[in-house]
């Protein structure tokens, strides 16, 4: 992994404080933050950086459209249930 830009700082709109590129490039486990392209496009050659350090699938994952908030929540509900051993599908009306 290229660490050239790791110490560069940016104000994170999502978290509300300063952090470094090192955080942005690995925010989501080994994957970068979804906003890495938005936030760094005018500071470093981020397109090149991503292409050289991540697979096309990983790049597609972060460049792809994020789900709507409500859809994210439904997905998280289902994941939480699966982790808790509740395998029933989420159905309208069932809490």
């Amino acid at each position: 992994m290229d660490t050239t830009h790791d110490s560069r700082e940016i104000y994170c709109r999502r978290l509300g404080h300063y952090l470094t590129f090192e955080y942005c490039r690995a925010e989501s486990g080994p994957r970068p933050c979804r906003k890495i392209l938005d936030c760094w496009y005018d500071k470093i050659p981020i397109g090149e950086y991503l292409r050289e350090n991540y697979s096309p699938g990983e790049i597609a994952g972060i460049a792809g459209p994020p789900p709507a908030k409500a859809a994210t929540l439904v997905d998280l509900i289902e994941r939480a249930r699966r982790r808790a051993g509740d395998s029933r599908p989420l159905e309208p009306g069932r809490e």
Partner: peptide, 23 residues
Amino acid sequence: PFSCPTLTAAPFVYDHGDTAKMT
């Protein structure tokens, strides 16, 4: 912010979401 915009003209990026067909 000019850096990290969401609503204003900026990147390129989102045009790729379609191509990837991830979601």
